[in-house]
Nucleic acid binder design. Structure first.
Length: 717
DNA sequence: CAGAGCCGCCTTTTT
DNA sequence: GGCGGCTCTG
């Protein structure tokens, strides 16, 4: 039998087989981090003869969770079959039908949701508690904001709702006070810190009254549960080993969770790279991975530094990016010698403007494809989601299919939220937020009318002394009664609405009540039908939006209640524009466009980083403090290290001031400051000129047609 | 005179 | 596509 670790390097092997109870694996980009972690999980299970579901793997994204859980499963299946000498055909069928090699895994938030579902009563929640996605939280903040300031002058001084969400969330995740948080993310509002703290408290109370949790609550309630010795023993006791991916992205709340989850068995493995810490805006700090050994006493560290992903050219870029960082990155990447050393140097591509950039990117992408690099092996990276809008137009014009990750989310589209709000009402008529949204679908009904109607339903009042837990303890019958009570008040509420819309409103309300013997899907569809005409009427492109609603009804097939569909969408929103619509074209090859954040953990043969002008990368908005610049540097590093063979960084010399540039105002751009000095020396610089750029912009023409193609040919033949 | 509706200005990253 | 501010309507 072959040694199962023989295909790994010594560093990886020692990380996988280490018997340290607390282990930190510092793994630079492309050093086989995922392989090492999944192999370590599988190894641990085999070596200790554990039941697979006694291993818990936590990640930050669903995608990572799915992939890693699957990979561990395959490894375990393979181990078993090696032992039993089973042949492959049997293996794959067997593997597909048995879940017994499935480890426990998911994102921090999904795991919290699962645990809280099972222990809802213990934290005073009903079992079908709703989950507010960040835009719901924002809407709730907006309602409270109105209470705090009726005058326009006051209103203007209160941070807007999305900012309030950020402030609150950051305070929760970092255990900072509101005024501390204000200092770092909204210094202009520091004077009002008391009022803002008040709004936050109010927000917490209102959530309680609605019986819902927001994303942060999921973690907070999980932690609260663990504080109770009995619950901790049961919950943490379900696992013998905990593994965490991307540990550089944890915040202090998550560290506390991990301490509580592992304090009995003391088995925790974390993998990460402080050079790739890019989530400080949500309270994460690379401090935690650096402090791991003091946070978990007796912890050991191993390092992975052999890069198997990228050419030396690209690693030179990556290492040069890291050099000017004050503390320096912990890991330095070293390429493994490969068969072909004839690689193409990375390119800085200067373009006249944004459209010139779009042109350059398309040309290059097509050229690469002609040389055998599939579109799927290419990615266009952007710092901010809207940076790709002009490129998307050009891609569509040329018929190049693409899928976009990050940025605009399906969940954020208004009509989807409308139907999900109605779904939530079907389970919880007490959900003021949902009423507020659904009522405003009616023509002629704005915030004020919706508010009055909701008030008449008796859901708008918050009574602090009336803990909803008491009512909920009586179980689901009480829940149903509460539901009934609210709907009883509808005749009064409808009187608040304009005469003309009372009919359609009645229909919506009638559809909320599930009929006896009605299937969930049928009920969902009935709600959809009552909402659809309103949606069609409300939005300009209503007709095309209606199609999306059917997809939501389809999702009820696997749910046990309608509000669960809403929760599932909140916790696991389709991450790309293509996820719900299906692949963009019949063609099965398509380009990936992604924000740098969403691309972390992925790799591509060719990486095109666009908008590398100072102000965009680094984004000027994040340069308020020195830490911001360092994080932008790490983002640039993450972007560069996605590439296996070819990296192009595009610098438009002028770009539009406004995002939806209806005007022609431009800014003359400096190339990103990250492209200067020693970094510049790791690139070849070329200029992309279209015929119409001649004379308009004075640029030397370095790029002879076909020259790039010749170079690339060597590489991918 | 409340509030619906329209105009013009601005827009980071995500569980 | 959101938000504040302004105008016009019911």
């Amino acid at each position: 039998m072959t040694n199962p670790l023989s295909d790994l390097d010594p560093q990886q092997r020692s990380a996988i087989a280490s018997d340290a109870r607390f282990l930190r694996i510092l793994a630079g980009a492309g050093t086989g981090k995922t392989t090492t972690l999944t192999r370590r999980v599988a190894h641990t299970i085999s070596a200790h003869e554990l039941r697979p579901d006694r291993a818990l793997l936590l990640t930050f994204t669903r995608r990572a969770a799915r992939e890693m859980v699957h990979r561990v499963e395959l490894l375990l299946d393979r181990n078993e079959n090696v032992e039993r000498g089973a042949d492959d055909a049997v293996t794959s069928r067997y593997a597909r039908t048995t879940p017994r090699n499935r480890i426990a895994g998911g994102t921090f938030h999904s795991m919290a949701h699962r645990i809280l579902r099972q222990n809802a009563a213990a934290v005073g929640l009903s079992q079908g508690f709703g989950v507010l996605d960040p835009s719901d939280s924002a809407d709730l903040f907006d309602l409270i904001r109105d209470d705090h300031a009726s005058t326009a002058v006051m209103r203007r001084r209160i941070p807007r709702k999305s900012t309030l969400v950020d402030i609150y969330s950051r305070a929760v995740n970092t255990s900072e006070t509101v005024s501390e948080v204000l200092g770092s993310i909204a210094p202009w509002a520091r004077e009002d810190s008391e009022m803002i703290a008040d709004i936050c408290r109010n927000y917490v109370e209102r959530k309680g009254a609605l019986g819902v949790l927001d994303f942060d609550d999921l973690l907070l309630y999980w932690l609260q549960l663990l504080r109770d010795e009995r619950f901790r023993a049961t919950i943490a006791g379900r696992f013998d080993h905990v593994f965490v991916d991307e540990y550089q992205d944890v915040n202090s709340l998550q560290v506390r969770l991990l301490k509580a989850m592992t304090q009995d068995h003391q088995h925790l493995t974390v993998v990460g790279d402080d050079a790739q810490a890019i989530y400080s805006f949500r309270g994460a700090s690379p401090r935690h991975i650096l402090d791991f050994e003091s946070d978990f006493s007796g912890a050991q560290t191993t390092v992975l530094e052999h890069n198997y992903r990228s050419t030396q050219h690209i690693l030179n870029v990556a290492n040069a990016i890291g050099e000017p960082a004050p503390r320096g990155f912990t890991t330095k990447l070293v390429a493994q010698p490969t068969a072909s050393d004839a690689t193409t140097p990375p390119h800085i591509v200067r373009c006249a403007d944004e459209d010139g950039q779009s042109d350059a990117v398309c040309e290059r992408i097509l050229e690469l494809r002609e040389h055998g690099v599939a579109l799927k092996e290419q990615v266009v990276l952007v710092r901010a989601a809207h940076h790709s809008s002009r490129l998307e137009l050009e891609l569509s014009a040329r018929g190049i299919p693409f899928v976009k990750y990050g940025g605009l989310k399906y969940l954020d589209t208004a009509h989807v939220k409308d139907l999900l709000a109605a779904f939530r009402l079907a389970d919880n008529a007490n959900d003021e937020l949902a009423w507020f949204r659904v009522l405003q679908l009616l023509p002629g009904v704005g915030p004020a009318t919706a508010r009055r109607a909701a008030k008449a339903l008796g859901v708008a009042q918050f009574v602090p002394e009336q803990p909803s837990a008491a009512r909920r303890k009586e179980g689901s019958r009480a829940e149903k009664n509460a539901q009934f009570e609210v709907l009883q008040l509808w005749p009064a509420a409808r009187k608040q609405l304009p005469l003309a819309v009372r009919g359609p409103a009645d229909e919506v309300v009638a559809s909320l009540v599930r009929e006896p013997e009605e299937t969930l899907a049928a009920h969902g569809d009935r709600i959809r039908r009552s909402i659809a005409p309103l949606v069609e009427q409300k939005y300009d492109d209503g007709t095309s939006r209606i199609h999306d609603l059917t997809a939501l009804v389809d999702a009820t097939a696997s749910a046990s209640r309608l509000s669960e569909v809403a929760t599932d969408f909140a916790l696991d929103p389709p991450s790309s524009t293509g996820d719900l619509a299906g692949p963009p074209v019949v063609d099965e090859d398509w380009l990936v466009i992604s924000t740098i954040h969403s691309a972390k953990g992925l790799e591509f043969d060719a990486t095109h980083l666009i908008h590398a002008a100072d102000g965009n990368i680094p984004l000027d908005m994040s340069l308020k403090d020195p830490d911001g610049l360092e994080e932008e540097r790490r983002l640039f590093y993450v972007a560069a290290t996605r590439a296996r063979s070819y990296l192009a960084v595009y610098v438009p010399l002028r770009f539009h001031v406004n995002r939806h540039a209806h005007d022609d105002r431009h800014i003359w751009a400096q190339p990103s400051r990250f492209l200067s000095g020693s970094v510049a020396q790791t690139f070849d610089e070329i200029t992309h000129l279209r015929p119409q750029d001649m004379g308009v912009i004075d640029l030397p023409v370095i790029d002879a047609p076909g020259a790039v193609g010749a170079e690339l040919q060597d590489l991918w033949r």
